[in-house]
């Protein structure tokens, strides 16, 4: 039998190396600030943050799998729970919840009540279109792509825009089966 996926990330969180939360928050803030200066357009910054998150996600998945002992990700429902309960705890120190499943079980929401990225942050009027935490959606998309799940991740609620929580919608587009990578004539 494959080992059962952990129900919560508390034990792993206790064992991983951690950095000071304020340092982390301020560093992320500095990156977003610099991107706003460099790229000028808020839309471009959103895109860039998503891309940076994606690049992080495709590496982070291995750390996640190695430390959490998760050995299979076939079921999307189970995967979403593991991301919310274990993944967020392990890397951000907070727990998210999974809600709003659609009828086919291919689309759900991950709700974050507490988000360490946004401490000290207020969006000025000039940046109203900014998804400040867009890096997170990229991370999830990148990490899931590495376990063969193509997803689309969008923000439904954002506390910086006056909502009461952060809500990410994760939509499973397709699961890619393993194929033999070499062509016959090679």
């Amino acid at each position: 039998m494959a080992p059962v996926a952990p129900r919560s990330g508390d034990a792993i969180f206790a064992n991983v190396e951690r950095v000071n939360a304020e340092l982390f928050t301020l560093t992320y803030g500095a990156i977003v600030r610099q991107l706003l200066t460099d790229l000028e357009e808020v839309e471009e910054v959103n895109k860039q943050l998503d891309q940076m998150g994606y690049n992080i996600g495709i590496r982070l998945i291995d750390e996640f799998l190695a430390k959490s002992n998760v050995s299979r990700c076939v079921d999307f429902k189970e995967t979403a729970e593991v991301i919310a309960k274990v993944g967020f705890k392990m890397f951000l120190g907070v727990t998210a919840s999974v809600t709003n499943w659609d009828a086919d079980g291919t689309c759900c929401s991950i709700v974050l009540e507490d988000n360490p990225l946004v401490d000290f942050v207020e969006l000025p009027d000039t940046c109203q279109g900014l998804y400040y935490c867009n890096i997170l959606s990229g991370v999830i998309r990148g990490a899931l792509e590495m376990v063969s799940m193509k997803t689309e991740v969008t923000w439904l609620r954002d506390m910086l825009r006056g909502d009461d929580a952060f809500e990410l919608q994760v939509k499973l587009l397709k699961q890619v089966p393993e194929e033999y990578p070499y062509k016959d004539d090679e």
């Binding site: 076939v74 089966p177 393993e178 194929e179």
Partner: peptide
């Protein structure tokens, strides 16, 4: 599935 039919990772 049949032999050689691609499987999902972990399946």
């Amino acid at each position: 599935g049949n032999l050689g039919v691609p499987q999902l990772p972990g399946q």
